[in-house]
């Protein structure tokens, strides 16, 4: 994802120089979580951040986002896109698979791998790629959603039980999936917790989340010189000081 970040960074630097506006560095994942926190009106949630490049169960502890669980190999969005390519569906795979899944009826057995609060998706993908073309794509799409979403929610529920937190918010492009949100709602209801949903257009990557987080950082006095600005494609949320408070 370095190339995408570099493109954005180049535009930001150009604007900084052309318009003489201050430059502020924002962590992409933190921006997702900050927007999810505000839009969901959560007080102290466990957050499931699931997109093309990330699958993480995160919560705030002592002014930092801590990753309690995550994928040990590939992100769920990565699995969806890889399978979609094999099945000849195109990019991005998630939305099309969601439509196909509505017509799926039969659960096809797939590897289900939850390890504490972590999950693993690569074995599931391998199994799927060997099934592509042999089983109806609708049933495969349905099974992917049922199996993979259940893995994510089991990991999230474990984090909620472990941290004794009673709010769940989702973020990321895959997080916007209707079935995932429905399952999250049921999981929370069954344990007396609240699933805090918000308009799905704020789930996927958007400019508002970066602008809002950047504004908070700016208010805290953060400034970046062009010559010091870099992209950090492996900058993890737990290495970031949060943009609010101090």
């Amino acid at each position: 994802m370095g190339p995408c970040l570099r493109t954005g960074a180049t535009v930001a630097r150009a604007l900084n120089l052309m318009l003489n506006k201050p430059l502020v560095g924002v962590n992409h994942a933190v921006a997702h979580l900050e927007l999810a926190r505000i839009m969901s009106k959560a007080r102290d949630p466990v957050m499931l951040y699931v997109s093309g490049g990330n699958t993480q169960v995160i919560s705030e502890v002592d002014g930092r986002y801590i990753v309690f669980g995550e994928t040990e190999d590939i992100a769920l969005g990565n699995l969806l896109d890889s399978f979609a390519r094999t099945a000849g569906i195109g990019f991005p795979g998630g939305p099309v698979l969601m439509q196909l899944a509505k017509r799926g009826k039969r659960l096809i057995e797939l590897p289900y791998s939850v390890k504490g609060m972590n999950v693993s998706m690569s074995g599931t993908l391998t199994a799927l790629e060997s099934l592509a073309g042999k089983e109806p794509v609708e049933d495969l799409a349905y099974s992917i959603q049922e199996v993979c979403f259940a893995m994510l929610l089991e990991a999230s529920e474990r984090a909620m039980a472990y941290l004794e937190k009673d709010e769940l918010a989702l973020s990321g492009g895959v997080g916007a999936n209707t079935r995932l949100r429905e399952m999250a709602r049921i999981m929370c209801e069954e344990r007396g917790a609240r699933f805090l949903d918000y308009p799905t257009k704020f789930y996927a990557d958007n400019a508002v989340m970066i602008a809002m987080t950047g504004l908070d950082l700016f208010a805290r006095g953060e400034r970046l010189k062009v010559e010091d600005s870099t992209v950090m494609s492996r900058w993890r949320v737990d290495e970031v000081r949060l943009p609010r408070g101090l």
């Binding site: 370095g2 960074a9 040990e72 870099t230 950090m232 494609s233 993890r236 290495e239």
Partner: peptide, 13 residues
């Protein structure tokens, strides 16, 4: 890799 990494080692312009 993963959660143990303390510093963002990989940087590029």
């Amino acid at each position: 890799r993963g959660r143990y990494r303390r510093k963002s080692e990989r940087r590029s312009r």
